[in-house]
Nucleic acid binder design. Structure first.
Length: 663
DNA sequence: GGGTTGGTTGTGCAC
DNA sequence: CGTGCACAACCAACC
């Protein structure tokens, strides 16, 4: 019997250690093994992917490719520039492959894609081998052992996981890899449509990755940022399995840290170094196996007997939460990511709710601007110019580094939704989706539902204060001083509420508290915005709105939510959009906004609105953005708070001019 | 079936 | 500066 000819399809499993799927491929004792990556246009054009995360992916791929080559100099990660649905059937034929092996994926797109690939492989008489490897337990098994219901509490995960059995010990990395077979093929590329390209705001030049199946040099190389036309990254964290394993070594070498870790006690204001492990981006791309972490931690905990921290706050607990969200997503499917049609999600009449495609019932990439005020709050939140230094520092750190502490995520999420702006959690989730290095659909959605009190968690009267909360771990405001450098010389007393500082203190600190974040330099002094609202007033309004919405008690799958007649159950006093008797009537004449069109140029609003000189055409703004970002590598430390700072700088001159004119 | 209890990670004040 | 407590508008799980 001839030996198997195996295509190993890498996706979000960019590692050699503890890969059950790769092990299964090797167990076939193949004659040849092609480690490939299909450069899928779905991710290039249709999913929000920030430039920092792209760079992190490329680093993971480069590292893996190098590791493969170390085991076999004839092999590498062969990156082929085409979507798997069209590419794989052609490859099966050209390479006469007998097997396709890959790690199981559980998110809705992954499942849909894989189901199609399985069908195509069957038609080509290629055997498909799939192993789970992304979570502690197989997500479908967790659901099954949870009575076929989504896992909505951590104890459900623990119980169901306990029934499945111990988390498997990690597998060692292979010591050798077979040669790839012939790399020749004579088929043509199926070029995808570039339109719409939701990532166009991330690019500074044309996206060229589909010019040639084998890449510009013809060697199946990992694409470059230049090939993708992407702007320069600003993140510090470097991707790759090699780096991840080094970090893990350092973490477990600190046995006290590892064994007594309690997430709620780690400081969200720590940034150099961070208080948490920073491993999540590596888990996202599969550069680090969660079971590797799990067992390395367990082996340390054993030495601590009863004194180690325990789930849910321990490191092990963090991994259990990850499994909970994965299994919930696997069970609920696409509607997990939205309120509409989701029976597990409470209905709250948020501002800026998603526009729903009437045919599919799924959220489009547009949202309804029911309130210009909420829209301006959303923009100011996204770009870190709310006037609340803690919120702004976190959002700028997110944009620059692609990473913020878990509790910082809580704080800004609470602020955007139930504890400040009363804006739909789906808006916030979209921003995190774009900017987080570790963005994991299941975890991101789950945590936004948690913080907005629409699922998993419901104690809406527990509200993060943008002033008191960071003070607990950073009295001096070092975190704010770093990421909001306008305020670096403010007295600690006013660092979280600079609007309270006397004028002479503001002058001494070299920064006026003035305007809405677009004023720039005024009378030779830097400015930082006034708070966009009074927090305690907004907190009260939001809590009343939440109480009302909880009393009404609708979930996303209720008919009244679907047909818009939920409005009849709310009065105008309730926070949120309540005008009209149904969505059709209420949304008449309401403008919509495409979320991914919200970019830097949108922060020009507020006090300057209506000033003809200040209104930029989109083209002009894009050009300005390019010139602002091109100097990214040379940017001084002062500007490390990211792209939005470029806007401050750009805006400064015109801002002061406009001020002068008004005078 | 109703009361109790616990829930990864709040705040503000007293001591 | 740390710990304890009242506050209190929640829901789910459990007895």
């Amino acid at each position: 019997m001839p030996k198997p000819r195996v295509i190993y399809w890498f996706r979000t499993d960019l590692r050699l250690h503890d890969s059950p799927a790769l092990q299964a491929a090797l167990d076939l004792e193949p004659e040849c093994l092609w480690p490939i990556w299909c450069w899928d246009p779905h991710y290039v054009y249709r999913v929000r992917n920030g430039h920092n995360r792209w760079k992190f992916l490329l680093e993971c791929q480069e590292d893996l490719s190098g590791s493969i080559s170390k085991l076999n100099k004839n092999s590498r990660l062969f990156v082929i520039r085409e979507g798997p649905q069209t590419l794989l059937p052609k490859l099966f034929k050209a390479w006469r492959s007998t097997h396709l092996v890959f790690e199981k994926d559980t998110d809705p797109y992954g499942r849909e894609r894989d189901a199609e690939i399985i069908k195509l492989a069957k038609e080509a008489k290629v055997e498909v081998v799939i192993k789970y490897g992304r979570t502690l337990w197989d997500s479908d098994e967790l659901v099954r052992f949870n009575g076929n219901k989504p896992t909505m509490t951590i104890s459900q995960v623990q119980t169901a996981g306990g029934k499945i059995g111990d988390v498997p010990r990690p597998l060692p990395a292979p010591k050798s890899l077979p040669d790839p077979g012939s790399l020749e093929f004579d088929f043509e590329i199926d070029r995808p449509s570039h339109d719409p390209d939701v990532n166009h705001t991330q690019r500074q030049s044309e996206e060229k990755s589909y010019a040639n199946l084998k890449g510009p040099k013809g060697g199946f190389e990992v694409p470059t940022m230049e090939e993708l036309g992407l702007i320069a990254p600003t993140k510090k964290l470097v991707g790759g399995e090699t780096e991840a394993l080094k970090m893990l070594d350092r973490i477990v070498a600190n046995e006290d840290y590892t064994a007594t870790f309690e997430k709620p006690k780690t400081a969200p204001t720590a940034f150099d170094p961070a208080a948490t492990t920073m491993l999540s981006p590596y888990h996202h791309f599969g550069a680090l196996s969660v079971r590797e972490l799990y067992w390395r931690v367990q082996d340390v905990i054993k030495k601590y007997k009863g004194t180690a921290s325990k789930p849910p706050v321990s490191l092990i607990g963090q991994l259990q939460f990850r499994d909970m969200y994965f299994a919930a997503h696997a069970s609920i499917g696409s509607v997990f990511g939205q309120t509409h049609g989701n029976s597990h999600c409470k209905f709250i009449p948020w501002h800026l709710r998603s526009k729903i495609d009437e045919k599919t019932g799924l959220a489009t990439k547009e949202y309804i601007v029911n309130s210009e005020e909420a829209e301006s709050w959303f923009k100011r939140w996204k770009f870190g110019i709310t006037g609340f230094p803690w919120i702004d520092a976190v959002m700028r750190q997110l944009r620059t580094e692609g990473f913020i502490h878990h509790l910082a995520r809580h704080s800004v999420a609470c602020f955007l939704t139930r504890g400040g702006c009363y804006i739909d959690w789906e808006r916030g989730a979209e921003v995190f989706e774009e900017w987080l290095l570790d963005h994991e659909p299941a975890c991101n959605i789950g945590n936004w539902q948690w913080l907005s009190c629409t699922a998993f968690f419901s104690q809406f009267y527990r509200c993060y204060s943008p002033i008191a909360f960071p003070q607990k771990t950073d009295k001096n405001g070092d975190f704010v001083r770093h990421y909001v450098p306008e305020l670096k010389d403010f007295p600690a007393k006013y660092i979280y509420e600079p609007w309270k500082a006397p004028i002479q203190d503001q002058r001494k600190a070299g920064c006026w508290i003035k305007g809405d974040g677009t004023a720039g330099v005024v009378d030779g002094l830097q400015t930082y915005p006034k708070p966009m609202f009074d927090f305690s007033t907004r907190r009260e309004i939001c809590i009343q709105g939440m109480k009302k919405a909880y009393d009404v008690g609708l979930n996303g799958a209720d008919e009244k939510v679907k047909d818009g007649t939920w409005r009849e159950l709310f009065d105008d006093a309730a926070e949120g959009p309540t005008k009209g008797s149904n969505d059709k009537e209420a949304n008449k004449g309401m403008r919509t906004h495409v979320e991914w069109e919200l970019n830097d140029s949108d922060i020009h609003f507020g006090e300057d609105r209506g000033d003809a000189e200040e209104v930029k055409s989109p083209k002009k703004a894009a050009a300005q953005k390019e010139s602002g970002s091109s100097g990214g590598g040379k940017r001084k430390r002062q500007d490390s708070s990211g792209g939005s700072m470029d806007k401050f700088v750009t805006k400064s001159a015109s801002g002061s001019k406009s001020k002068a004119k008004k005078k």
